[in-house]
């Protein structure tokens, strides 16, 4: 499809225009608001606001909880992805079952359902008491938030891992075994290194939404636990302080950019093995 330059331009211009207006310009506006005060004068105050005790606490808590959730997601997802990659499952129906179908039940309702499951007299505790096991009281604690994060973002870890594992040529693994490597050696020398692009994009896809969520903490953490996402959301919708909210978003974007650079380094195709 080698067309003339002009038709080429004609085809690409709608999307380029869209991307500039609705992706690039809005991000520039976040920077503009984040770096100015109400009078429009340049300031670093909104970014420095992250240092205040309340905001720093929210940021550390968010970082901690999202790191824990990412690690848990990784350790749950890796074996699952390996099992599925070796099973010759129909890839399409697997993606639909694990990823698409649950989304047709609203994400807020699904997260709220965990309240019903986790409550003091909820389903899980009824089952536990029936089995004479100690009850589980994690609702409105950081543990419940971690559970909500793992629940919501697990598919985002499974899919990239599965995609990178399924691409591995079985001959490479057979060769390693022929050369005398046992299962553990084959895993650490062959399978694991070859799945690193999937791991990186899985980590990005879980860590970023977990770090920035305000919904999960709102629904499962009671109203007492503030994450950095809650602080930003409130500064926009309740306090009406867009400058502060934008400044804190810039801080978040630093983490996002670090993550994007890391995934760009490991994902050399530049196509994103995300889905």
């Amino acid at each position: 499809m080698k067309n003339s330059k002009s038709s080429q331009r004609l085809l690409s211009s709608p999307y380029i225009a869209w991307a500039v207006i609705f992706i690039i310009v809005p991000l520039c506006m976040v920077f503009y608001y984040g770096l100015t005060d109400k009078t429009g004068a340049f300031t670093f105050e909104n970014i420095a606001a992250i240092m205040s005790a309340e905001h720093a606490k929210a940021l550390w808590l968010s970082l901690g909880l999202s790191l824990i959730s990412t690690v848990i997601c990784f350790f749950i997802a890796y074996p699952l992805a390996m099992i599925l990659a070796n099973m010759n499952v129909n890839q399409h129906s697997f993606i639909v079952l694990i990823f698409i179908l649950p989304m047709w039940m609203n994400f807020l309702l699904r997260t709220l359902a965990w309240q019903t499951l986790l409550e003091k007299t909820g389903v899980i505790n009824n089952v536990l008491s029936f089995l004479h096991l100690p009850s589980l009281n994690i609702i409105n604690t950081p543990y419940a938030i971690v559970l909500g994060m793992v629940y919501n973002f697990l598919p985002f870890m499974v899919l990239p891992l599965y995609n990178s594992l399924v691409k591995i040529d079985p001959n490479v693994i057979n060769a390693a075994k022929d050369l005398g490597a046992n299962n553990v050696q084959t895993f650490f020398k062959i399978t694991f290194p070859l799945s690193i692009p999937g791991i990186i994009s899985g980590i990005t896809m879980v860590f970023i939404p977990a770090l920035t969520t305000f919904v999960i903490s709102n629904l499962l953490g009671g109203s007492k636990i503030l994450l950095i996402g809650n602080v930003i959301e409130e500064s926009f919708t309740q306090a009406g302080n867009w400058h502060l909210g934008s400044g804190l978003s810039i801080v978040l974007m630093i983490f996002i950019i670090v993550n994007m650079v890391a995934s760009a380094i490991f994902d050399k195709d530049g196509e994103g093995s995300a889905l």
Partner: peptide
Amino acid sequence: RAVLMGVTNIPMLNADIVTGISLMLL
């Protein structure tokens, strides 16, 4: 092509909350 694909990835990799507020400001 690499530049445009990079821009395309922004809404997917960026946090929803940042995408949301940036569009709201726009």
